[in-house]
């Protein structure tokens, strides 16, 4: 009975794995295919698309923008989200539940609604759309994730280490810098990395809030309409996929350290 279950389970796992991975592999395979058309049979191996990628200045520019937006919005989200996390994990204050509700609200709002709201506000205040407006949008959606990841870490250990530091004469902010934050470091790094990947990939907010400068997903989207540019889009996809996988494996590793308990000794 249990043996059968095991084999059926394994079979199902492999099927689902195939279903989930095949489309991704397909993109990678086509990025090496010597043809403009994305069809089988494959025409032969080429690095032409990768060479063209290096010369596509618009695309490289878009990637640079995504990188800048990703870095800035993740740093801001990590700082703000961590401050919020310390507040909710270490203090019981009136309005705590209200704050938690508001702060996690961006998690449950469809991005298109948030994008529209921000767009209308910037328009009403005559703020010109730029990389900054996208950064603000991405910071808002990343803050709750950072807050929950860091708060989970902080809830994982009692604050007696912090109390000990203060008993020994450290100031509160000194303790925060030298005890609380170092203990939270794996969570902080994981939160930062997941914010970054989220921002780097995010399309809807960037689409609404972009000025003259595009992000990588917005640029890619604009290319999808032209069949002749598909190979380049697919090749970009392949590069992004490979980079994402490396970042993911790294952050997954950190997260596992991050959610583990602090050694007692």
């Amino acid at each position: 009975m249990r043996q059968t279950g095991k084999w059926v389970g394994l079979g199902y796992y492999l099927l689902l794995l195939l279903f989930l991975q095949l489309p991704i592999l397909l993109l990678i395979v086509f990025s090496f295919n010597d043809s403009v058309l994305l069809v089988f049979p494959l025409k032969g191996f080429t690095l032409q698309w990768y060479r063209e990628l290096l010369q596509a200045t618009e695309l490289i520019n878009a990637a640079k923008n995504s990188l800048i937006i990703g870095l800035v919005s993740s740093v801001v989200a990590t700082v703000l989200g961590s401050a919020a996390a310390i507040a909710i994990a270490r203090y019981n204050f009136p309005g705590r539940a209200f704050f938690l509700n508001i702060a996690t609200l961006p998690l449950v709002i469809p991005y298109v609604v948030l994008a529209v709201a921000l767009l209308l506000m910037f328009q009403a205040l005559n703020v010109e759309l730029s990389l900054w407006t996208i950064m603000i949008g991405h910071t808002i959606i990343n803050m709750p994730y950072v807050m929950l990841i860091v708060a989970a870490r902080l809830s994982g250990f009692a604050n007696n280490l912090e109390e000990a530091a203060m008993d020994l004469g450290a100031t509160y902010w000194g303790t925060l810098m030298r005890v609380t934050l170092p203990i939270s470091m794996p969570a902080l790094v994981a939160a930062f990395l997941s914010s970054f990947t989220m921002s780097f990939d995010e399309f809807s907010l960037a689409f609404f809030l972009a000025g003259t400068q595009n992000t990588l997903p917005v640029y890619l989207y604009s290319q999808l309409r032209f069949p002749s540019r598909l190979p380049l889009a697919v090749t970009t996809a392949a590069v992004v996929i490979m980079v994402s996988v490396v970042i993911l494996l790294f952050s997954e590793w950190l997260r596992r350290i991050g959610t583990g308990r602090v050694p007692k000794s």
């Binding site: 796992y13 689902l16 794995l17 989930l20 991975q21 489309p23 991704i24 397909l26 993109l27 086509f30 994305l38 990947t197 780097f200 990939d201 399309f203 997903p217 890619l220 989207y221 999808l224 598909l230 889009a233 697919v234 996809a237 992004v240 996929i241 994402s244 996988v245 970042i247 993911l248």
Partner: peptide
């Protein structure tokens, strides 16, 4: 199994378009 979740949403949709 969930590796594809980390890959850009737009790109996963693109894969299905293909």
């Amino acid at each position: 199994l969930i590796l594809p979740a980390w890959i850009s949403y737009l790109l996963r949709v693109l894969a299905w378009k293909v």
